[in-house]
């Protein structure tokens, strides 16, 4: 299949799942009626449900999924390691920590974009730490170990911050920040996170050509005129913005950036410049599908997205480790 047709097929899947997300919910109404209520306000509560609850949820599903899928593909391109994934190596966890700290310190009240900005700062710190600790182009083991250490630390500090809160509801939020959910989000969340996610994704999409050169090795890439320092800077910034803003509104949803590039790499012939946009669409499709599934499995109970993603992602992860065993 040509690249254009793959992109077209993925877009169609995303569009279909977007519509599916819009018609999935606890309210017992037909899909046609739901979609009609999206455009025609007949004074019943249904248009309110469609426009203020389901539409922002579906939009966030697309944006969060695209951010995570794209970030995974870009990080894997830079580190030349298929296990690099924002959730696994602690970037999402650090983003969640930043978000929680901004909530607990009251920084969120200071200015409108405080929450995603704090999450961005956390994710940026996480990405820099992992890149620094794992070294570039080095083996899988340092990367995974650095990721394990960082995500445990971020998780522990998030729990600590929430347990220290005088608010009795704070401790119950640990699950949200670690597992992620899109339940009952509003357009306020879309407005807050969308600009940063789009900015991050745009930055990551520009790195395709450089990542392509990097597949030949760092020296070869440098001789082809790729500025490696600039590439790293753009990539860390892009990942931090996309993952940070996604985490600020949806919590830390893991494995999207692992599963999607893994599934699509073969279809795009392993070329990063093609894998990046394909992974963005694939991520959107996967998160939309997972978010539909959590609502079908346990209607109205807010089963966390991360639970489902781990069920899908962990086997892929194990499979990758199995294939890489014996390598240094």
């Amino acid at each position: 299949m040509s690249h254009g047709r793959i992109m077209l097929a993925l877009s169609a899947v995303v569009a279909l799942l977007f519509a599916g997300s819009l018609v999935t919910g606890v309210a017992d109404v037909s899909p046609w009626e739901s979609l009609r209520a999206l455009v025609i306000d007949d004074g019943t509560p249904l248009p309110l449900v469609m426009r203020e609850i389901r539409l922002p949820r579906a939009i966030l599903g697309v944006l969060v999924g695209a951010s995570l899928g794209l970030s995974g593909a870009a990080m894997q391109g830079l580190l030349r390691n298929p296990l690099a994934e924002p959730g696994l190596i602690g970037v999402s966890g650090m983003g969640a920590l930043g978000a929680v700290l901004s909530i607990q310190t009251g920084l969120v009240g200071a200015f409108a974009l405080a929450l995603p900005t704090a999450a961005l700062a956390g994710a940026c710190l996480g990405a820099v730490l992992v890149f620094f600790l794992a070294g570039r182009g080095s083996g899988t083991l340092p990367l995974i170990l650095a990721g394990v250490a960082l995500s445990s630390l971020a998780g522990a500090l998030t729990s600590l911050a929430l347990n220290l809160s005088p608010n009795p509801f704070a401790a119950s939020e640990i699950v949200f920040w670690m597992m992620g959910s899109l339940a009952d989000r509003s357009f306020e969340h879309v407005a807050m996170a969308a600009p940063l996610m789009l900015l991050g994704c745009a930055a990551l999409l520009t790195t395709g050509r450089s990542l392509e050169a990097l597949t030949l090795g760092e020296d070869a890439a440098a001789s082809m005129g790729v500025d490696l320092r600039r590439l790293r800077l753009v990539l860390v910034g892009g990942v931090a913005a996309a993952v940070g803003a996604a985490t600020a509104v949806a919590g830390a949803v893991g494995f999207v950036g692992l599963v999607v590039p893994h599934l699509l790499r073969g279809a795009v012939g392993g070329r990063p410049a093609r894998l990046l946009p394909a992974s963005a669409l694939g991520g959107a499709a996967l998160v939309l599908a997972a978010d539909i599934a959590v609502r079908l499995i346990l209607p109205g109970r807010d089963l966390k997205l991360g639970v489902l993603m781990a069920l899908i992602g962990a086997p892929v992860f194990l499979h990758l480790i199995w294939r890489m065993r014996g390598e240094p």
Binding site: V108, G109, P168, A170, E173
Partner: peptide, 15 residues
């Protein structure tokens, strides 16, 4: 309870 939390955010949902 004061101290904004995500749990109480839902009470300010536009819907």
């Amino acid at each position: 309870y004061g101290y904004t939390t995500r749990a109480e955010e839902i009470l300010r949902h536009p819907a």
